[in-house]
Design a protein around this nucleic acid. Structure first.
Lengths: 146, 146
DNA sequence: ATATAAAAAGACCTTTTAGTATTTTATATT
DNA sequence: AATATAAAATACTAAAAGGTCTTTTTATAT
């Protein structure tokens, strides 16, 4: 569904949020470990998340990553858009530039509802909503690495 | 939805099938033109399609590409699988190796029906079914280039 | 037979994605 | 103030995807 960068970013942010709910601020090594992503790559991606304003960080001893509670939730749509653009939830299944009800590609009828479902999912769910589910399950053992 | 190679392959095959319905056997230059794909790349991709057994070709004067009518239809699922694997219609939305009803990722509940709809679409539609739709519409002007 | 038209083969090149490593800067503890 | 710790910045490498080009083979029409 997503490319590697988006996947690691999403997993990382969700993990950070779950830890934040426990009043913890994980660092790169821990996050990379939990998420099953290469540590250097994880660092690069999380730094980008901070620059994009999705996440906060604190350098030095006791530092790590955390979410600013006064900021709005991070919708998956915004996260995905920022990393890999909007093509996963918009645009024609057949790859046509112009494809709509009036001028449909041969996949339009079947694909349009799928695209809408994807959009709905990405628009309604957020890093926080996913983290809450895991936190509610009280899941300390994530199956990221599965 | 698909990567470039799959997209060009699908468009090319559908175009070839539509022309075949008219008893024509288009060549690379024409196909590339209609599909809006780079000619050399189109050649490479169609050659691969022939080697994979999805398509027939005839060299020399009057040659071109065509489908063997005695062969079964080319399901989108098989085409997509051969080019880019199965990850677009199988696997976890969150990227987990093991994710199912018993051990669901936080996206599982919403994503499972989407994945199933994609699978259904790719399994039920074929190059021929798409070409038939276009042929039935008697569409000579494709909007590939849109 | 020969010329010509077309695909096949295969070697390249370019861009993007994925991943690694090193140095610099900020923070908290002592 | 010194030190240890952790992220930021930045440069680099590797692999995959996307794309180009030249040469070879094969079929057909003349």
């Amino acid at each position: 569904m997503f490319n590697k960068e988006t996947e690691y970013a999403l997993k990382g942010l969700v993990y950070i949020q779950v830890q934040n709910y426990k009043e913890l601020r994980p660092g790169i090594a821990e996050i990379a470990q939990e998420v099953g992503a290469p540590p250097f790559y994880t660092a690069k991606i999380l730094q980008r998340m901070v620059r994009l304003g999705f996440l906060e960080s604190l350098k030095g001893k006791g530092g790590g990553f955390y979410f600013d509670k006064t900021q709005p939730q991070v919708a998956l749509k915004d996260l995905v858009s920022a990393i890999e653009g909007t093509k996963s939830f918009s645009g024609c299944g057949f790859g046509l530039k112009q494809c709509d009800e009036n001028n449909p590609c041969p996949l339009h009828e079947q694909y349009a509802p799928i695209r809408e479902a994807i959009y709905k999912l990405l628009n309604e769910e957020s890093v926080q909503s996913l983290a809450s589910k895991l936190f509610a399950r009280n899941e300390n053992k994530f199956n990221w690495l599965g």
